[in-house]
Simulated assay, not measured.
Amino acid sequence: MEVYRLEAACKDYLWGGEKLKSEYHITYSGTALAEAWMLSCHKDGESRILPAEAPSIDPSPAEGKERLSLFLERHPEALGTIAGQFAFFPILIKLIDAKLPLSVQVHPDDEYALKYEGQLGKTEMWIILEREEGAFLYLGFKEDYSKEEIQKAIQENYLTDLLKKIPVEKGDVFLIEAGTVHAIGAGILLAEVQENSNLTYRVYDYGRKDKYGKERELHIEKALKVLHTGRLAKMPARFTSENIGNCASSEGMKKQEKPRLSYIERLGSCKYFTVERLKTASEEVYRRKVNEDSFLFAMLVDGKAELSWQESPESQNPIHSIKAEKGNGFFIPAGRGELFFSGEGEWILSFLEL
């Protein structure tokens, strides 16, 4: 099987901006674009496989482009052996452009969601790609509160006063467990890697109205049943561009007189996904083998690069290649063999791991 570039499913929520179209090469005919579902087999928005000759921005309609879920039904081996533990495609990956703040919300865990909603809950990871001066997010509570105190704050519109406000920088990473109250603030563009779920309980929405003039639905009763009321005992995983450094090369951690220009780092992992960040320099080629255990999704989030691979795992030289621009995402089937990442860019790599 080849390497497949995917077309995103687009969402035009009222808080979206214009950067995903203008800077991340996402095809969309509307104006504001809030989310691009880059890797998705979810019924609410599926990725599609683009033809090999498709331009970076493909204006052609979705008809004739195979849905990723149908491709995987025909080629289940493309998922890899680890995926056998799931009855569903486990990952959903998005690019999110928050021109305005998102609602304060919470996601239930799997046990609650499967019992009462018939679908998965949601643990997610945020990787900050861009931010405006002063941008922040809300993550968890400042102190331990009772549900009665939280409910009163919701009813009297001061819930955000109870939340932990965290300024963000480009490169920050947050792993957010189900049950944690959170909100993305205005002026943030991020990548989100999450469980394959679209289940959100909206707690507070600043009294905003949708395009039909109606306030969006809140889910306060459900949210109060699933949210963690206590202060976070520790911050979730968070790494900044200041402390990353040249943490690992493509050959692993080594003591060197001169740091390598390219490096890869582990951002986080859970049952449903493992995420790494790869930075490549024009002076080097990063080699990565994709074995039979898992597919790999590679998303270029900065720079320009090239992705090359061998015709077969037994071949000695890379003979196929795709040029990648910011915002392009590629599905690499399990067992594809060795890949070659070249050019100057930053990639988010997602896969399954036992």
Rank of each mutant, 00 (worst) to 15 (best):
E2S: 14
V3T: 11
R5S: 01
L6S: 01
C10T: 15
Y13L: 03
K21Y: 02
S22C: 02
H25M: 07
A36L: 09
A36C: 06
C41Y: 04
H42V: 01
D44N: 14
P51Q: 12
A52E: 10
E53P: 01
D58N: 15
P59Y: 07
E63N: 10
K65D: 13
R67E: 11
F71K: 01
L72I: 03
T81Y: 06
A87N: 15
F89A: 04
F89K: 08
I93D: 00
S103T: 11
S103G: 08
V104H: 01
L114D: 02
G121C: 07
K122R: 03
E124K: 00
E124C: 04
W126G: 09
E132W: 04
F136N: 04
Y138G: 06
D144H: 14
S146V: 09
E149L: 01
I150Q: 03
K152F: 09
E156S: 14
N157F: 09
N157E: 15
L162R: 12
L162E: 04
I166M: 03
P167E: 08
V168D: 00
E169G: 07
E169P: 01
G171S: 12
D172P: 03
L175V: 08
T180E: 02
A186P: 09
G187N: 05
L190I: 06
E192L: 02
G207E: 10
D210A: 14
K214M: 12
E217R: 12
H219S: 07
K222H: 10
V226H: 06
H228Q: 13
T229K: 02
G230Q: 05
G230I: 08
A233K: 11
K234S: 10
A237K: 03
R238V: 00
A248P: 00
G252D: 06
Q256F: 05
E257A: 14
K258M: 10
I264G: 10
G268N: 11
F273I: 07
V275C: 07
V275E: 01
E276N: 10
A281L: 01
V290N: 02
N291R: 11
E292F: 10
K304F: 08
A305V: 13
E306P: 03
L307S: 01
W309M: 05
S312T: 15
N317G: 05
P318V: 15
I322K: 15
F331E: 13
G335F: 09
G337Q: 07
I348K: 04
S350F: 06
